[in-house]
């Protein structure tokens, strides 16, 4: 791949999605964009780059889509979900006792495993949460991922990564080698495409935001902008979940770690509606 083509494609992808592609990721561009080139009847990345220079918007959309498609797994890393069940849910149930309504945002939901893990977890709480309303909003930049997530159909491989067998039996139906998630779980999540580079002000207020393993793909300035945007939409006693390799330190002063809970952040100056960690 020509250097100028790599630079052009990397710049285009960053402009559209915030995703930073360093030179050592050239292989990723080639692997993911060759099928896009073929789809558009182009011979290779040379021709694809020429079309990008001519601002072929449909092609640019497909390129962004191909580069931002990432796989996920149910109950990824376990711990955040254990903490959600043991500390966040009880904390919120106390703090929201009056309105009995909780809004959750899964900000880069990929193929839906994260919001569906939360739905199953909430469903498993059963009687405790009768009369409560949980709105789970799930967004992703990729329309392909949103459509896959909405369908709630997973392969045998996908349902074996992170999902306990008891939940598979309870909430999935088998159809050949595919597993279909129960509509009662699917209907708990509202999916829509959303680019985190856009203004978050129309999203409304959330009690919990999951924005895990997304910031790692952004440069410092974009990370700061996204985190500040989330802070504006988060309730003062709400919490933000980031991925294990992500931090707010040196990026924004709007968030601080929740003591004792790795990966969980509170708004600076706020008191999170979370059962304090025992030390």
């Amino acid at each position: 791949m020509k250097v100028e083509d790599f630079e052009l494609l990397a710049k285009t992808v960053k402009e559209r999605s915030g995703l930073v592609l360093s030179k050592d990721k050239a292989y990723l561009l080639e692997t993911r964009l060759m099928p896009v080139a073929r789809k558009h009847g182009l011979k290779g990345l040379d021709e694809l780059s020429d079309q990008v220079r001519r601002r072929n918007e449909t092609l640019i959309g497909d390129i962004t889509e191909a580069m931002t498609t990432n796989e996920s797994l149910f109950f990824r890393d376990n711990k955040p979900f254990d903490q959600f069940k043991a500390a966040v849910l009880p904390g919120l149930m106390k703090a929201r006792e009056g309105q009995k309504r909780v809004r959750i945002w899964s900000a880069a939901c990929s193929s839906g495993q994260e919001p569906y893990s939360l739905s199953m977890l909430i469903k498993e709480e059963g009687a405790k949460l009768t009369d409560w309303r949980f709105d789970i909003m799930a967004t992703d930049i990729s329309m392909e991922m949103i459509n896959k997530a909405k369908a709630g159909i997973y392969t045998q491989f996908e349902v074996q990564r992170g999902l306990p067998i008891t939940l598979l039996i309870k909430y999935f139906k088998q159809n050949g080698d595919k597993w279909i998630l129960d509509s009662a779980i699917r209907s708990m999540v509202q999916f829509k495409p959303f680019n985190l580079l856009e203004s978050l002000s129309g999203m409304g207020q959330f009690d919990i935001v999951f924005c895990r393993n997304v910031l790692i793909y952004f440069d410092q300035a974009t990370k700061g902008k996204v985190l500040d945007g989330i802070a504006n939409q988060l309730a003062d006693d709400g919490v933000l979940y980031l991925g294990g390799a992500e931090t707010v330190l040196g990026i924004t002063d709007r968030f601080a770690p929740v003591p004792g809970y790795r990966g969980m952040y509170q708004k600076k100056g706020g008191t999170p509606a979370v059962v304090p960690a025992s030390t």
């Binding site: 045998q156 074996q160 306990p164 067998i165 008891t166 598979l168 039996i169 139906k173 088998q174 080698d177």
Partner: peptide
């Protein structure tokens, strides 16, 4: 790899279930 076998295994005391290939 069918639901019936999985349910039978869990009822008999299995703690988890892997469907080959793994």
């Amino acid at each position: 790899n069918d639901l019936e076998h999985i349910q039978k295994a869990i009822s008999a005391g299995a703690n988890e279930y892997i469907m080959k290939p793994f």
